[in-house]
Amino acid sequence: MEEQDYYVIFPNVNEGLKLEKQLKEKKIKYTIVPTPREISKCCGICIKYLFEDEGAVKQAAAEHGIQVSGFHALHKRKK
């Protein structure tokens, strides 16, 4: 199976920063990245996380009422 990267996108930057704060506190590994064009054509942040943390990321967002616009998986880019 081809490897995939996992992303969560937001309706605005503040929601993204709120989730970042939670992930940092819970010590869940994440990276802020520019939103891949395959997901959305609007410039802005999204958060990349590891597949095994998906449940924890969703829970962190739900617990704190953080709005997300969606969770996406993309095939890892070949260099």
Partner: peptide, 29 residues
């Protein structure tokens, strides 16, 4: 931008976690 930044920056191993701030600035540039 996303592809260029991904190739040059996000492909690095062992990056300091504090670089997330600058990832944020670039994403929102």
């Amino acid at each position: 931008l996303p592809e260029l930044y991904g190739d040059v920056y996000l492909s690095q191993q062992n990056r300091p976690e504090g670089m997330n701030y600058y990832n944020f600035v670039i994403s929102e540039v």
